[in-house]
Each structure stands twice: as structure tokens, then as C-alpha cells.
């Protein structure tokens, strides 16, 4: 043992709640291990970093097809041979969750999907046109300036510029900003006056377009 850190610093998956995502949980666990590493043992210092990096890529939708096997491989080495209890334990926990939630991992890696819409690369944010009252708070708050709108208009998030900082979600007094996964809701293409957007309009966007993604094709 070269490090006095132990696994007590980690939160438990069992306590993570129903809304949590196993990939996101593992990423944060490894992030903690990486940040706590004393830097001496290569499996802890570089291994937890590498695993964290791969998991982060997965949550951001940048996974590569062989990442599951790579993770299993690296976690196995860390679990068995790292010099300290902390990183060995972190790896063991992740390894177990990798095996017990293989389907969820596979969905993340191959389809860039997250069941609970926790992982950033798996959802988009939108302003629900039925709730938005055009107050403009979200527009002012967005660090990316990715929101269009104006006084009395339904605001629209430009998803290609949104980095999911979630600031708008926290400032919206109406809780009108929501996550969308594979099923994309019907929203206006550009800001329109509050109350003017209904089911009959927005011909191009109608019907809840289902964007299909398959495998590792973006």
C-alpha cells in the first residue's frame, strides 16, 4: 500500500437513486479516483485517468465500438494489480457495474443512448412551446448564447450550439426547458409569438420526428 486513500471516499451505486445512469456514475467514480490518486502507481495514476477519459467519451456520445472490451481489460488490470485499495476498489465496482448493466453500456456505446437521459451526449434540450411565456430569462442566462427569442416570443434553443450547461434549466421560472432523447418533440423552427404555436402549425417539424441512429453511425 502506498496511498492512505480508501474506497470510503466513493458514493455507492445503491444510493444513487432511480434517475441515475450507470455510465455517468462510473465516470464520476473514476473521476474521483483519478483526482485522489497519489500519483505513484501507474495503474492508478494513468489507469483511472484513461478509464475516466473513455467513460467521458461514452457519455458524450464519442464512444468507439471496442470501448466496452477496452474498459473491461483496463479495469481488470487495475482491479488486480494497482498498488492501493482505493483504485482497486473503484475498478472492481466499475467492473461489476459493467457486467451487470451490459445492455445499458452497450446502448451508450453503440446507439449513443442513455435510458435516464443523464449523459450529455444522448439528449438535446428544448423549450416546451406550450409552457414558455417568453420571459427571456433563459436567453440572458445562456453562456453559449445558443437561445433565440424576444419579448413575448416562444424561445428556441439552437441545439448545434448548446453545450448542455443546464443554466437555462435552472433559471426558467416555468420549468419549460426539457430534455429530449431519441424522440424529438414538435417545436417551432424560430421564435414565434407566445400562443401562436399549435399542433396545426409547423408542418415541417410535425408528428414527433423520430431520429434514427444505428450502431456507431452518427
Amino acid at each position: 500500500m502506498i496511498c492512505d486513500k480508501d474506497s470510503k471516499i466513493f458514493t455507492k451505486w445503491e444510493e444513487a437513486g432511480k434517475e441515475a445512469c450507470v455510465v455517468d456514475y462510473c465516470m464520476n467514480l473514476m473521476g474521483t479516483a483519478k483526482n485522489e490518486s497519489c500519483g505513484k502507481c501507474v495503474l492508478c495514476r494513468e489507469g483511472t485517468w484513461q478509464v475516466y477519459q473513455i467513460m467521458r467519451d461514452i457519455t458524450e456520445g464519442k464512444a468507439e465500438s471496442e470501448d466496452f472490451e477496452l474498459l473491461a481489460d483496463l479495469l481488470g488490470q487495475i482491479q488486480n494489480y494497482a498498488s492501493c485499495e482505493m483504485s482497486r476498489n473503484a475498478a472492481a465496482v466499475c467492473m461489476e457495474l459493467l457486467k451487470s448493466h451490459e445492455e445499458e453500456w452497450d446502448m451508450h456505446i453503440r446507439r449513443k443512448r442513455c435510458t435516464n437521459l443523464v449523459c450529455k451526449g444522448t439528449y438535446t434540450l428544448y423549450v416546451d412551446p406550450d409552457i414558455c411565456d417568453g420571459c427571456g430569462q433563459c436567453l440572458k442566462s445562456c453562456p453559449q448564447e445558443a437561445i433565440d427569442g424576444g419579448d413575448g416570443l416562444i424561445h428556441v434553443i439552437r441545439t448545434d450550439q448548446c453545450n448542455k450547461s443546464m443554466v437555462c434549466v435552472s433559471v426558467c421560472p416555468k420549468a419549460a426547458i426539457k430534455k429530449a432523447g431519441a424522440v424529438k418533440p414538435k417545436i417551432p423552427g424560430e421564435p414565434v409569438p407566445v400562443g401562436s404555436f399549435g399542433a396545426s402549425e409547423g408542418s415541417g417539424e410535425g408528428g414527433g420526428r423520430r431520429r434514427r441512429r444505428r450502431g456507431d453511425v452518427e
Partner: peptide, 14 residues
């Protein structure tokens, strides 16, 4: 050998 390779790969990553 596997452990050795992994360790060296990890060092080379950065």
C-alpha cells in the same frame, strides 16, 4: 506480459 503491455501503454498515453 499483458500487465506489462498495459502499464507501458498507459505511460505512453500521455
Amino acid at each position: 506480459n499483458k500487465l506489462r503491455m498495459t502499464a507501458l501503454e498507459l505511460m505512453l498515453a500521455s
